[in-house]
Each structure stands twice: as C-alpha cells, then as structure tokens.
C-alpha cells in the first residue's frame, strides 16, 4: 500500500515535469534572429498583410502606424485589450530586443517568459518565414513611439490563469497548414498570405470544443468573436464571387454589388489594400480553392 502511494507520487512528479517541459514558453534563439539581415520594404508588406494595425493602432486614429493599442476584443472569455506595441521604451516595446519581438510573434511568449493569449494570432504567425518576421520586427522599429499605457485584459476565471495557455497551445497551435492544395505557385503564395499572415481563419473558421480552429470546416463561418452577428462562410459553398471580385474587395472594401466592408473586416481591408495586386489575387485564388463547406 505504501509502495503504491510512492508510485503515484513518482508518477505525479513525472507528469509535472513532463507537463512543464511540454507547456513551457518557447523562444526563438537570438543568434538565429541576428543572422538575418532584415528587408524593411518586406517588413512593411508583412505589417499590412498580417493586420498588425487592425488591433494595435489606437481605435479611430487617422495614422495607422501609431501602435498605441487600446482596441477592445470583446469575446465570450472576456475583453482582450490590444497592448501598446509602439517604440515607446516604457509603455511600448521600444526596449525589447529584436529576438524578443520575433519570439512574441512566432511563439506567443513574452520577454519575461509568459504565454500570450491567442487573441494575439501567433497560431497563424508561427507558419511565417523567420526572415519575414525579422523584417517585420525591424520595420516596427522605424514606427513612432507613443506613451499611452497598455490597459489590462478584463477576463474572468478560468481564462485569467495564464498557465493554462501552455496546455492550450498543445492543441491550438499547429505547424502545418490547415488545408491541402494542389501544387501551384499562386495558391502557395495565397495560402502563405492567408494562413500565416492575414490569419483569415481566426474569424472565418469555427472552433471546436478545445477552442482550436476546426480545420475540417475551414472558412465555413463562425459567430463573431467580438460582438454581434456572424462572420460569413467564405468557402465556395456560399461565396460565389469571381477571383477579380474578391481581389477588388480586399483592395477597396467594395463588394460586387457595392456595399462597403463593415465590422472588423473594414480594418482588415485597410491593411490588405496596401498589398500589390498579385498578392491580393493570390489570396483570392486561395479563397476560391478552399473546400466547400456548408
């Protein structure tokens, strides 16, 4: 009986160590980041494609490069408030190393070794090329500083327990793409832009019981994570727009019948509208290639 208790204790200790090892916050080594020469023009393109300003620009600010934060993502788990990621050394990320910024974006780990909530779409950004994210980090360094303090998230139990995010990452963060596509350079570019940077699936794909994206119903629409209404199904089962229609919508916000994008999509279009035409067409080709799902 005594021995049984010891075995249980031993197993418990093992589980704790294994759990810690599996769920501890991961980082990108500084020397890997230092070895890459950033390309600022590429960093700016990544900035627009990844939609950084959609959440981190101050709401209603004219200048979308002042990343003072403050956007409130009002979800069933509580309110996530986008932090200040401007270059202010005290209130922003001005005194972070480039490797710390890259680690935050790809691994969802803060400089003090904590997990970020996946309201920050690192489950998409982890699929980006390291050189693209290094270029993005370098581009962020060229943007203005703003001394607005970040506001705390307003979350209830159990979402207020950050350690739980480490466990969630085991199911919610995957290395591979969500869907298989024929080998085609335009589709590959579209998949990279959509799945790794623009993180379309974060809103357009429903979530399963574990709150991970349901890749069997990719882009099939979902409840609006930040308010009323629904985020539409954009698979070919529902969206019958032409490739040019989709590309034009992503550039200008005009639908084929000339309604104008609203809700959170308005900010997405403000970012994507800066991409070259070929990239918008690549995203459109990808959207049209997604399996139809009712």
């Amino acid at each position: 009986m005594k021995r049984f208790g010891l075995i249980i204790l031993g197993l418990g200790a093992l589980a704790l160590v294994a759990g810690w090892a599996l769920t501890r916050p991961a980082t990108i080594p500084a020397d890997e980041v230092a070895a890459i020469t950033p390309d600022l023009a590429r960093g700016e393109l990544v900035f627009h494609a990844a939609g950084c300003a959609s959440c981190h620009a101050a709401p209603d600010a004219e200048d979308k490069t002042i990343l003072a934060g403050g956007y409130r993502l009002d979800t069933p788990a509580g309110v996530f408030v986008a932090p200040n990621i401007s270059q202010d050394p005290e209130y922003g990320i001005g005194n972070w190393t480039r490797a710390e910024v890259v680690t935050a974006i790809i691994k969802g780990t803060s400089p003090d070794g904590r997990h970020y909530y996946p309201a920050f779409p690192y489950p998409a950004y982890n699929k980006a090329e390291l050189s693209d994210i290094v270029s993005l980090a370098a581009y962020l360094e060229t943007l203005p500083a703003d001394p607005t303090p970040s506001q705390p998230h307003e979350l209830g139990f159990p979402y207020s327990i950050r350690v739980g995010i480490g466990l969630w990452k085991l199911v919610g963060v995957t290395d591979g793409y969500a869907i298989d596509l024929p080998d085609d350079p335009q589709l590959a570019r579209g998949q990279y832009l959509s799945e790794a940077l623009a993180h379309c699936g974060e809103c357009h794909t429903p979530r399963n019981m574990q709150q991970a994206l349901d890749t069997t119903r990719w882009f099939a629409g979902a409840p609006n994570p930040s308010g009323r209404g629904t985020i539409p199904n954009i698979t070919p089962a529902k969206l019958d727009w032409s490739l040019d229609d989709i590309a034009a919508y992503l550039e200008t916000g005009f639908t084929p019948d000339f309604d104008v994008a609203g809700g959170t999509m308005a900010a997405v279009v403000q970012g994507l509208g800066n991409l070259p035409k070929e990239d918008l067409e690549a995203i459109a080709a990808y959207v049209k290639a997604v399996p139809a799902a009712e």
Binding site: N233, G253, G263, Q270
Partner: peptide, 17 residues
C-alpha cells in the same frame, strides 16, 4: 469615398452573411 463609407460600417454595421 469608400473609406468614409467603411468608417461608419466598421463601427455601426452588423457583421452578417
């Protein structure tokens, strides 16, 4: 003009299919 339309839709139009 499109951005002016979008500014109002962003804050005040219901997201829907």
């Amino acid at each position: 003009v499109g951005r002016a339309c979008g500014a109002c839709h962003e804050d005040y139009q219901l997201s829907d299919e």
